[in-house]
Design a protein around this nucleic acid. Structure first.
Length: 131
RNA sequence: GCAGCAGGCUGUUCCAUCGUCCCGUAUCUCGCACAGCGAGGUCGGGAAGGAAAGUCCGGGCAAUGCAGAGCACCAUCCUUCCUAACGGGAAGAUACCCGCGAGGGUAUGGUUAGUGUAACAGAAAAUAACCGUCCUGACGAAAACUGUGGCAAGGUCCGCCUUCGCCAAGGCUUCGGCGGGCAAGGGUGAAAAGGCGGGGUAAGAGCCCACCGGUUCCUGCGGCGACGCGGGAUGCCGUACACCCGAUGGAUUGAAAGACCAUGUAUACCGGCGCUAAGGGCUGCUCGUCCGAUGCCGGGGGGUAGGUCGUAUGAUCACGCCAGCAAUGUCGUGACUAGAUAAAUGAUGGAACCCGACAGAACCCGGCUUACAGGCCGGCUGCAAAU
């Protein structure tokens, strides 16, 4: 199923603040990702939040449109991430921040999203091996 | 028909699949401490705007706080009405400006009192004088004219008369600079010393007079009123803005307000001792008055994360009747119309057309302002044509 529950989203303001303080960062063509390893007690292996900077997009309608497209792309493709994470036995919390300066169409968002979701488990295992 | 004026309404639609938030006294499954609660599914219903925006006014709601006096500050300012209230709205008043017109825009408490300012231009922005105009002034120059007196020559009826003649002083004219009068005309300006005509004068001027416009006072009628239409007297009269004077209003914070539950620890709060200095107390300052840090002792409840309420039945919306020019109000009937809390409307495929503007709720209302593709409705004006 391609649902998107509340428990899959990042809801706590405290963990978001913590992420920006201590999280690891990597980039894809459209996004900046801030992530950290999670406790692993949750129902789902990942919790996510989306952010579009107010600096680039002054109008609320524009930010809404971009966030909805990103979220839709995540919802449709999250199973790639989930499979990789459950097989590795890891769980993460992360924020996707949009980097572009123009409003993207859905196809380019989806393309960049699959790139991101492939990259994130690799980053996680890379850090695990370091430690 | 074309061009325009003011106003009102509207703000892409449909189908399929997947997904988000909320609601349900619909239903199924699972868990637990099992008349219940929680999680998930299925079914049904609902899910952004006319400006949701700017946060510019006015309220509601909430917390804190409030002896008083003086001075200052800010906002508002024609009238009547509407409204919970407003700096908003409706209907009007007066003046000026724009438009052929339908109409539109701007201004508005008081002050013939006082003070200040008035860019640029202009002579001058208020004890006016550049050009101009005049000489009731003195002086100089010029040449023509005029009469008077004297001289000369000539004539003579011996009274005087005549002269392109000469001299003297004057008149008049013109010019020059000096001095003075004037506020008519010109030009400048947002604004130029009430307007216009006559008398008057050297020339002029409210200097005087008639009419007109205004000021102040008295007064009749109409209007709830701002005011309007008149009558009488007075007097000779600049404009704008600010200060000024008056009336009314002004506590602060803002839903991250605030209330509660649960959890179990920095120190709010109270009392005493001590200290009385900073500081705080309804916009600011001063006076006055009240409180009063730190420290010590005792009492005592709270930080952070989470949840519930606040939080959507309201100055609500729709329709109708009545009252009113209208804003709006009374009454009746019906409706329930987003409620999130890192924050909900999207994606994909297809179809239609005029190919979709400005733009996203965050405590809630009433306004104002700003942004905006297009479409619809009736009313009115001008022009053209027809009758």
């Amino acid at each position: 199923m391609e649902k998107f529950h509340k428990s899959e989203r990042l809801c706590s303001r405290k963990t978001i603040a913590l992420l920006f303080e201590k999280g690891s960062i990597f980039y894809t063509s459209l996004f900046k990702i801030v992530w950290t390893a999670a406790a692993g007690t949750e129902e789902y292996p990942a919790r996510v939040a989306f952010s579009i900077p107010k600096k680039s997009f002054r109008k609320a309608t524009e930010r809404n449109l971009i966030r909805r497209r990103i979220r839709e792309a995540y919802r449709k493709n999250k199973k790639i991430l989930y499979e990789a994470l459950t097989s590795a036995g890891a769980s993460v919390a992360f924020i996707i921040i949009y980097r572009g300066q123009t409003i993207p169409d859905y196809l380019s968002v989806e393309h960049s999203m699959t790139e991101l979701l492939g990259k994130l488990p690799a980053e996680v295992s890379k850090r695990d091996s370091k430690c």
